[in-house]
Structures are given as structure tokens and as C-alpha cells.
């Protein structure tokens, strides 16, 4: 894996670099499984390797100009090769990085023999919690505050992307070649509902087994991207009032839950006794929707050139 990372860093073309990055993400998700972290593996495969990769490929396409045959992105890039090893700058850098790695290594090596764990007190609570998946409990009950802020970060990123997109220079550009591919369209029509179903399952499973809001949201987002590529229902994916509502529903639910807790004399985001299970499932469903929509939008915001409104009527397909 380290080898793939190395090759990705020094790949001679950008395209190779991005593809190797995706491969790296997949290897990472294997590593997660080996480390008994199936939740993270799911999220990594969908988000790390899938969506980030798609975004990068797309940005690369944008920056490198029209399709690959203009070869801008395919040539060895000037100034891209690492400085030759003899250069003092490179040596200093290498020494610095080596020192950093050494420190990290010492830190790991010097860990106490017995692992006390940050979670010791928390684990006691996890054990008799109605929701059986430990990671879910931590995310949505014990450390709900973090998750709340994370959703806020996510929302801000999406808004930023949307704002920049709205202000982007309006130059006509070719849409990805998927345009008009019947095969893609057919596949998307069949696959998207299935993906939504899988997302629902992951969400539900998250309370007991591995799964949960993040993998589910990623799945939903991937379905959105697929629909996007196949250009189905572009009108719905566009930046509309409904979209904005869905975008913020996760944060909004958190806020309402927090406020309700305040009103009944509990700490922010502390669930009332007995309602924890219901609350968690509810919040999880809401943030799943938000994550899915945000991911699709992030892709959409950067993928499509900002000339959707005029194109809309022609994009409507026959109901299928």
C-alpha cells in the first residue's frame, strides 16, 4: 500500500496519479476490514475511493482541457519530477520527513503496554445501550456533538461549492461523454432504485451491525452521481428549494434535537431516557439524506457547467 502511495506521488502523469489514488483507496478499505473496522471500510470504499476519485477525475478533465487527446494531462509535466536527490533542498526535506516518521514511530513504539483506551468509561455505557453497533453509539449518542459539527462542516463545504459554481465563468463546455449513452441510461434506471434500497438497508443495519449513516449516505450520493451522469431528472438535482431543504435537514434535525434537550433540562444533544433508540434512528435517517444529497450536489456542482436552466426542458426523458 505504501508502494502504491509512493507510485501515486511520483506518477509521471496526473491521470495515473489519480487512478493510483483510487487504487490506494480500495487497498485502504481492505486494510480497514483487516483491522475489524467494517464501517470505515464501507465508507472508505464509497467515499474515499469512489466519490473523491470521481471528483478528482472530473476536475482533472476540466483543468486539462477537452478530452485526453489534447494530451495536456497526459504528458510528463514540467516541474513535476521530484528534485534530484543531490540537491540540498531535497536532502533537507528528506531528512525532515525522515525525522517526522521517526518521531511517529517512537510515539507508536512507546505506547504503554496495556491499552487503557479512551473509551473505557464510554464502553461501559455502550454495553447496555439499545443500539448495538458501538461506532454508531459513539457517533450519535456519546459524541453527538462532533457529528453535529461535522454535518455543519459538510453543509458549509456544499454551500461554498454551490456559491463558487454560481459565480463561475459561464463558458459553454462539452458535457461528459456519457451524454446520450443508452446503455448508461438503462443501467442507471435499474440500478438507482436498488442503490437507494441498499442505502436504506445499511442505515437500518447500522443500529445493530456494521453500516450506518455514513456508508448509507455515500451509497445514496453514488446513486445521485449515477443519475447525474445518465442525466435523468436533472431538474430535481439542480439547485432548488427542495434541494436546499434536504441539504440542511441533517443539521436542522440535530439542532431541533439539541434544543428539545435544552428545553427539558438536559445537556445539549443528550437524549431523553428511553427515547435514545428512536432519536438515533431518526437523526441517522436525516443525516443519511443530507449526506447523500450533499455528495450528489458536490459532484454536480463541480461536474456540470452552470448552464442547467436552459437545458432543462430537453433533458426530460420519457417516463420509464
Amino acid at each position: 500500500m505504501a508502494l502504491v502511495a509512493w507510485r501515486a506521488i511520483f506518477a509521471e502523469t496526473l491521470f495515473k496519479c489519480v487512478v493510483l489514488f483510487i487504487a490506494f483507496g480500495l487497498l485502504m478499505s481492505l486494510a480497514w476490514v483487516r483491522l475489524d473496522a467494517p464501517d470505515i471500510a464501507l465508507a472508505e470504499a464509497a467515499i474515499g475511493a469512489g466519490i473523491t476519485g470521481a471528483l478528482m477525475l472530473d476536475a482533472l478533465g476540466h483543468v486539462a482541457g477537452e478530452p485526453a487527446d489534447r494530451s495536456a494531462g497526459d504528458m510528463p509535466l514540467p516541474g513535476e519530477a521530484p528534485p534530484p536527490a543531490g540537491e540540498p533542498l531535497a536532502l533537507v526535506l528528506l531528512a525532515g520527513v525522515g525525522g517526522l516518521m521517526g518521531l511517529l514511530g517512537l510515539a507508536v513504539w512507546g505506547l504503554p503496554e496495556v491499552y487503557r483506551g479512551v473509551a473505557e468509561p464510554a464502553l461501559a455505557e455502550v454495553a447496555d445501550h439499545p443500539v448495538a453497533n458501538a461506532a454508531t453509539v459513539v457517533l450519535l449518542d456519546l459524541r453527538a456533538y462532533d457529528t453535529f459539527l461535522e454535518m455543519a462542516v459538510f453543509l458549509v463545504a456544499a454551500l461554498g461549492a454551490l456559491i463558487l459554481k454560481a459565480r463561475a465563468i459561464r463558458e459553454p463546455r462539452a458535457i461528459p461523454p456519457a451524454h446520450g449513452s443508452e446503455m448508461l441510461h438503462a443501467v442507471a434506471v435499474w440500478l438507482a432504485p436498488l442503490m437507494v434500497l441498499v442505502a436504506g438497508y445499511l442505515l437500518w443495519a447500522g443500529t445493530a451491525r456494521s453500516g450506518g449513516a455514513f456508508p448509507a449516505g455515500a451509497m445514496l450520493g453514488a446513486a445521485g452521481v449515477l443519475l447525474f451522469l445518465a442525466q435523468i431528472g436533472r431538474g430535481q438535482i439542480a439547485d432548488t428549494r427542495v434541494m436546499r431543504l434536504l441539504l440542511s435537514i441533517g443539521v436542522a434535525t440535530f439542532l431541533v434535537a439539541g434544543a428539545a434537550a435544552f428545553l427539558s433540562d438536559r445537556a445539549f444533544l443528550e437524549h431523553a431516557p428511553g427515547t435514545a433508540y428512536a432519536m438515533i434512528v431518526l437523526i441517522e435517517a436525516m443525516i443519511t439524506i443530507s449526506i447523500g444529497v450533499t455528495l450528489a450536489l458536490l459532484y454536480g456542482a463541480s461536474a456540470l457547467d452552470p448552464r442547467t436552466p436552459e437545458a432543462e426542458p430537453t433533458e426530460e426523458r420519457a417516463p420509464s
Binding site: 464501517d39 479512551v118 473509551a119 455502550v126 453509539v137 457517533l139 459524541r143 463545504a157 461554498g160
Partner: peptide, 26 residues
């Protein structure tokens, strides 16, 4: 079972990294 707290942190981190990446790309 592994410690769930770092797992939760990493899940959060992945999503934050994604949003930062998407924003950076835009």
C-alpha cells in the same frame, strides 16, 4: 472488539476530508 471511539473519529474524518477535497477542487 476494537476501540470504537477512534473508529468514530475516523468516520468523521473521512467525511470532513471529502468535503475539504471537494471544496478544494472547486
Amino acid at each position: 472488539d476494537p476501540d470504537p471511539v477512534p473508529h468514530a473519529m475516523v468516520l468523521t474524518g473521512i467525511v470532513v476530508a471529502l468535503s475539504a477535497t471537494a471544496f478544494a477542487l472547486v
